[in-house]
Simulated assay, not measured.
Amino acid sequence: MYLEHVNLVVADMDAMLNFYRAAFPHWHIRDEGHGEWYGKPRKWVHFGDDRHYLALSDHGEGQNRALEGHSVGLAHFAYVTDNLDAVVARLNNVGFAVAKPGATEPFRKNVYFVDPAGFEVEFVEYLSDIPAERNLNRDAPLIDHL
């Protein structure tokens, strides 16, 4: 089982595509169309690869939840990369700065960006193939899984 897609309602489709094209240069528009969502017209795009995609709909209104707040809602989602520095460079090149650095961990490095719709996106590069090391947090002891 794996996560196939995440459906995000946004206000600016072009800005979102600019961000995600920089993060995932191998992704493409898999499908797109127009429809209606409870009486409001919308354009939708499926942007991804053959296995995973983002479903983006452009009928969003208002602001996303405050990331520093305590409102119920999506906190962030994360993508694994083999080259975090390259992802950061591509996003920086199109005008996006790291929103916050990740924790200092011995077996992974990560950063957080905020996309144009206000969703926080984590990018993580693992430095170990051992699950117990990959999942280790500094404030938790390493557990030997038999």
Rank of each mutant, 00 (worst) to 15 (best):
E68I: 07
I29F: 11
Y53D: 05
G60F: 12
T81E: 03
H26N: 14
P101W: 09
S57Q: 15
V80G: 03
V98I: 01
A23K: 05
A97H: 10
A78W: 00
H28K: 15
G69M: 07
D85T: 15
G102D: 02
E68A: 08
N93S: 15
N83G: 07
A86H: 13
D50V: 04
V45Q: 09
L84I: 03
A75E: 06
I29R: 11
R65T: 06
S57R: 14
T104V: 14
H28T: 13
V80Q: 02
G33V: 02
K40H: 06
G60V: 07
A103R: 14
G60H: 14
I29A: 11
A66M: 06
G102M: 07
F24W: 03
A103L: 12
L56D: 14
L84C: 04
G69N: 11
L54M: 08
L84W: 03
N64L: 00
L67M: 11
D58Y: 01
E61H: 06
Q63I: 10
G62Y: 01
L91G: 04
A78V: 13
H34L: 05
R21C: 08
E68F: 04
R30M: 02
R42V: 00
D85I: 08
L84A: 04
F47Q: 00
N83E: 12
N92S: 14
H28M: 07
H26G: 09
D31G: 09
P41Q: 13
E61W: 12
F47A: 08
H46L: 07
V87P: 07
G95Y: 07
L91Q: 01
A89G: 14
D82W: 11
A97V: 10
L54V: 04
V94C: 08
H34N: 13
N93A: 15
G35D: 10
R90Q: 10
V98K: 09
D82L: 09
H59I: 10
V80P: 02
L74Y: 07
G60C: 09
A97Q: 14
F19N: 00
R65P: 07
V45C: 11
L56S: 13
D82I: 13
V98F: 01
R21G: 14
Y20H: 02
F77D: 01
F19Q: 00
W37Y: 04
S71F: 11
G33I: 05
G39V: 05
G39L: 01
Y38S: 13
N83D: 15
N83Q: 12
L56P: 15
K100W: 01
D50T: 00
A89R: 13
W44C: 07
D31Y: 09
S57P: 12
K100G: 03
V88D: 09
W37E: 14
D50G: 05
F19R: 03
E105Y: 00
H59A: 06
L67N: 11
R21P: 11
H28D: 09
G69V: 01
G73M: 03
A66P: 06
L74N: 05
G102T: 06
A55G: 12
R21K: 15
E68R: 03
F24C: 01
N92R: 15
W44Q: 09
H46T: 03
D82E: 07
